[in-house]
């Protein structure tokens, strides 16, 4: 891992299109500003991890039968 020290107001540039700026320091929290092209997704790490984990769980059940569930749904909302 590349480790850099930055002060508030300073930034780092990743590639030619991504810029991360340290906006503010408040106790144990740091506010970051991220500029990136719209096709680059930027997420909080823990939320991204939750989505990734759920995708992995979802992929494991993929070959199951869906007919019973489809029936149950129809009854539930019938």
């Amino acid at each position: 891992m590349l480790v850099l020290t930055r002060k508030a107001g300073e930034s780092i540039v990743i590639g030619s299109e991504i810029r991360v700026t340290v906006l503010e320091l408040q106790g144990r929290q740091i506010r970051l500003g991220i500029e990136a092209p719209s096709e680059i997704s930027v997420h909080r790490g823990e939320v991204y991890e939750r989505i990734r984990e759920e995708n992995e769980r979802a992929a494991q059940g993929d070959q199951q039968e869906l007919r019973a569930l489809s029936q149950a749904l129809k009854k539930g909302s019938g």
Partner: peptide, 13 residues
């Protein structure tokens, strides 16, 4: 959808 053998445990993201 995350499937489960238990219909009550089937969830959507």
């Amino acid at each position: 959808v995350t499937l489960s053998s238990e219909p009550g445990q089937v969830t959507a993201n």
